[in-house]
Write a protein that binds this DNA or RNA. Structure first.
Lengths: 228, 228
DNA sequence: GTCTATAGTGCGATAGAC
DNA sequence: GTCTATCGCACTATAGAC
């Protein structure tokens, strides 16, 4: 599956996640009409990602955010409760997108090898689609006590566990060579993450998503698949 | 070479780097006596790494730093010029340590395969020894305009280039299979970095440095070396 | 729902006694 | 070389007009 096809297939989920976040937080968000709240949240999130990916979330002031999003300071507070809560909503968005993607695509799994390749491809494609979101979560999560650190670790462990389970199945039925499943999953993870963490590097070198997926797949298969 | 032996062999370099940093910045550091300046810098750096690795450099206040390091606020400014300059000195420390290590160990290279394995091992061992320093540089560098972003990219490109050169030599003489050298180097880099970026995870699982090196080496060799 | 004006807080940085 | 006391500023958050 090419990235273009992936985009088409999962294009609806962006609004869906936004709606879920709004519904989850109706108690703290003072803006009650869904349509205006969603419009505001969208503007605020985009502006937050832009500003904080320039020089960090801590350094971003709510005055800057107000100017960038075109939303007054008071309305800002009516939409996000406070600065930290804004960050937690964005991190939540990322975790949700991972769950939605992998919950929706279980039926695509077939052999362990096909499954592993799909997990890696889907992960990289998703982070390509939501690069600023994932980068934000990766770099800012650890700065927030409960909400962030816990959510980030949960996300880290979630995909790692999924990969490790897949590896174990493959080793049982002989598709993969005998390796330490958890350790191997731990090494695959940073390969997937590098795509959105060092996006500037790959963009600068004109590396396409598809090409990146191909290289990661080759590397992992050389390690796992007998006779490759 | 085990990590213990590595530590012994390179144990002197810590003070050496500190001295170099002091000499480089004598124009901005108001404390002139080398002995007191070095003692102060050491206290300040350690406290900075501790505090900023808890909740980020931006969030760390100079009052906290003063309390943690036991150095008065005025003396702090006499030693570091200002907050941003402090960060740049730490990032400099990291870049320097990489250069010193690899400049000192060129003679250890033999075949391309041995050389590649040495680069990976040395990189992981160095970042184990200086974990808080590397973690600081990795997570804070991008927040600083010139000094940080440039130095971080320089560091990223430096090791990547070294690996890529080594790969090219190995492909020419047939030690390695034909792969894209730059792309392969780009994929090796995050494997090396994960050791200090996700230290909490590996520590929690009691993974030793030596064992981590072994797994990374296996993965990379499976991809590169014919018949493995 | 949205804005502007402002209260209250805590910062980086400095001056000046020791 | 070191500390304490303090300045000026920019921030988050809120109150109240529209």
């Amino acid at each position: 599956m090419l990235f273009k096809d992936f985009q088409k297939k999962y294009s609806l989920s962006k609004d869906q996640i936004l709606l879920e976040i709004f519904e989850d937080n109706q108690d703290v968000i003072q803006v009650k009409k869904a349509k205006t709240a969603l419009k505001n949240l969208d503007l605020i999130f985009q502006a937050t990602l832009k500003l904080s990916n320039q020089s960090g979330f801590q350094a971003m002031t709510l005055r800057q955010l107000s100017a960038e999003s075109g939303i007054g300071l008071g309305t800002l507070y009516a939409s996000i409760e406070n600065k930290e809560y804004l960050a937690s909503m964005i991190i939540n968005y990322v975790v949700r997108s991972l769950h939605i993607l992998f919950a929706a695509s279980e039926e695509e799994y077939q052999t362990p090898k096909e499954q592993l390749i799909w997990i890696m491809k889907a992960h990289i494609y998703l982070t390509e689609e939501l690069q600023p979101w994932f980068f934000f979560a990766f770099s800012e999560a650890r700065h927030f006590e409960e909400i962030g650190k816990a959510a980030a670790k949960k996300g880290e462990i979630y995909t790692e566990k999924m990969i490790a389970d897949c590896l174990e199945r493959g080793m049982e039925d002989g598709s993969f060579r005998e390796r330490d499943p958890l350790m191997t999953a731990s090494l695959i993870k940073p390969l997937l993450q590098d795509w959105y963490v060092k996006r500037w590097k790959y963009q600068h070198r004109n590396v396409s998503v598809e090409s990146y997926v191909a290289h990661v797949t080759d590397l992992v298969c050389a390690y796992l698949c007998p006779g490759e």
